[in-house]
């Protein structure tokens, strides 16, 4: 049986059918990414897996004793709540000091135990959230736009960390992401969601599928609006398209160099379906 298995899941909130007949499986050690425009039900799907949204029909099966590590889409800490990093990672259960240090190292932000959460930058905070999700050695990691607030270097590092974590913990990863170009490189399987599952499979297959091209390629106005929105929060990741910016110019020497492997994939995509990335990239550049 799969780690996580979703059968014919439907979710209706108010009068709106958010999710319609979703079938999805996640295996141990596999990275599955949900892509889709805003309002396509990606977060609702993750939230129904953790039990925050109850399905209207259908079933969600988790393997017996399957532990979930979850990074929510939004977490705003009230400034009246004092909270050190170490205390945050010990919620709701206490862990040993070594376990905390280990999780922070795995998330790529070691040695910040005693800092106040409020003093962290957005990117550091996302890593703390990842570290917290790793505390219980989860069997499955659910990441809801975990790279928001990270710059392009941070995003590349983040996905490398996720890749490392799934190998060390052997966990399955189900994530929501808008960074299509990185997603296609970092995922084993991509699920294209738009209320229902439009298409799913390996990144190559999904990008070649007409349903995906409909959603991200041909309906350009929609795709552009959706990208503009993203870039108003993050002013650098679109530049990974450009080799000039992808070079590791101001990076500490530790860690592996960022993968320039993006380029062949990008070329491939550009050949296969011209509109999507070509249209997205120049416009995204334009909004800086």
């Amino acid at each position: 049986m799969s780690l996580l298995s979703i059968k014919n899941l439907c979710v209706t909130l108010g009068r709106h059918r958010i999710l319609d007949a979703i079938d999805l499986e996640v295996e141990r050690g596999e990275i599955v990414t949900l892509v889709g425009p805003n309002g396509s039900g990606k977060s609702t799907l993750l939230r129904s897996i953790i039990g925050a949204v109850s399905p209207t029909s259908g079933r969600i099966y988790r393997q017996q004793g399957c532990r979930i590590g979850y990074v929510p889409q939004r977490l705003s800490l009230d400034p009246t709540l004092p909270m050190t990093v170490v205390r945050f990672l010990n919620l709701p259960h206490r862990h040993s000091r070594a376990a905390v240090a280990n999780a922070l190292a795995q998330a790529g932000i070691p040695g910040v135990e005693q800092q106040q959460i409020a003093d962290l930058s957005g990117g550091q905070f996302q890593r703390i959230l990842l570290a917290r999700a790793l505390m219980d050695s989860p069997d499955i990691l659910l990441l809801d736009e975990a790279t928001q607030g990270l710059d392009h270097r941070g995003i590349a590092d983040f996905y490398r960390q996720i890749d490392r974590v799934r190998h060390t913990l052997g966990c399955g990863v189900l994530m929501v992401s808008h960074e299509l170009h990185v997603v296609m490189r970092a995922s084993d399987r991509v699920v294209c969601l738009h209320g229902h599952v439009c298409c799913q499979g390996t990144p190559e297959r999904v990008m070649a599928s007409p349903a995906y091209q409909d959603l991200f390629g041909l309906d350009t106005a929609d795709a552009l609006a959706f990208y503009r929105h993203e870039h108003s929060h993050d002013h650098s990741d679109s530049r990974t398209h450009s080799p000039a910016y992808a070079a590791p110019t101001c990076r500490p020497s530790s860690g592996p160099a960022p993968a320039p492997a993006a380029k062949p994939v990008l070329k491939q995509t550009a050949q296969r379906r011209e509109p999507a990335l070509q249209l997205i990239a120049p416009n995204a550049e334009g909004c800086h």
């Binding site: 939230r47 953790i50 039990g51 925050a52 979930i68 590590g69 979850y70 929510p72 977490l75 800490l77 009230d78 709540l81 909270m83 945050f88 919620l91 709701p92 259960h93 917290r132 659910l142």
Partner: peptide, 14 residues
């Protein structure tokens, strides 16, 4: 209580 105060979804996941 503290976990639920931080974020309801985070609490649910735990």
């Amino acid at each position: 209580l503290l976990t639920a105060t931080l974020n309801e979804d985070l609490a649910r996941a735990s």
